[in-house]
Amino acid sequence: MHAEQWEPPAVLLAVDLVILTLRDARLHVLLVERGIEPYRGALALPGGFLRDEHEGIEEAARRELSEEAGLVDVHLETLGVYGEPGRDPRGRVVSIAHLAIAPRLPEPVAGTDAAGACWTPVEDALSSGVELAFDHRQIMSDGVERARTKLEYTALATAFCGETFTISELQQVYEAVWGIRLDPRNFYRKVQGSRGFIVADGPMRRTANGRPARLFRAGPVQMLNPPMVRSAHVMPQGGSAVQTPAEGGGQA
């Protein structure tokens, strides 16, 4: 085929957003109810097409975040590119997915082509009983796994706590994001062994059971060394699995 006979294929460029936060000690994802076809009435990730050839990728992502969920000033990072043929019945659509993980995000406000917006527990959103538009279940699953990995290697978990917190409160963040229960003693040992992750702060505080608990605040480091790797499984009495974080790549 001669170069002058070749025509580029018609490809539409879109953005999709995986927005995660903690609410009531559970990891939640932002979903919108589609108000237009295709998949009208189904739940989906916020997103949409680039407005024109002059709009940047991140600019489009932030515009969609504002228009469909009423959220601004949220840190976004690129999650991945999704462009399998047939992923969208309207034609060949390539989506640049973005991820945001932030504490204490407000209630969303639906707009433009979204009939509604809501925070949904991740385990519910990923269940087979929830219909998700397009390939958004895969995108969401990838985003959740990225978030879980970030808790292994970065100090992100402290952002979900108050200015000061107990190690038990920090453990609750890990359990909510990882979706598992952790052994408290092993967790305490691993956290204390990760240099600069947290530092002691202020007097001890009495917990709900009346026992005093030491307070901590976020340390100076952003990358954990050694990381809090999800690795070993322990079967306690009662038969429920407990997963414990291990140092480095070894077993706890």
Results as ranks from 00 to 15, higher is better:
232 A>E: 14
198 I>C: 06
123 E>N: 08
177 V>M: 03
192 Q>Y: 07
205 R>S: 06
236 P>N: 02
235 M>S: 00
199 V>R: 15
91 G>E: 06
16 D>I: 02
44 A>I: 14
213 A>M: 10
155 A>Q: 04
133 A>F: 04
182 L>G: 01
174 Y>L: 06
38 P>W: 12
95 S>M: 08
182 L>I: 15
227 P>F: 14
100 A>N: 05
108 P>T: 15
69 A>G: 04
14 A>I: 00
207 T>K: 10
60 A>R: 04
22 L>Y: 10
80 G>T: 02
9 P>K: 03
99 L>R: 01
144 V>E: 01
104 R>V: 15
84 E>A: 13
29 V>W: 01
159 A>T: 09
214 R>H: 09
18 V>P: 03
88 D>A: 12
46 P>E: 11
200 A>R: 15
15 V>E: 14
187 F>H: 07
11 V>L: 09
4 E>H: 07
113 D>P: 00
99 L>A: 04
235 M>E: 01
144 V>P: 01
248 G>L: 13
113 D>L: 10
33 E>F: 00
245 P>Y: 03
137 R>D: 01
82 Y>K: 02
40 R>S: 04
242 V>F: 01
2 H>T: 15
221 V>A: 11
30 L>I: 14
79 L>K: 02
83 G>S: 13
120 T>F: 12
179 G>P: 06
29 V>Y: 01
7 E>C: 06
213 A>H: 07
118 C>T: 12
225 N>G: 02
56 G>I: 00
21 T>E: 10
176 A>Q: 05
133 A>N: 04
98 H>W: 05
9 P>S: 09
233 H>C: 00
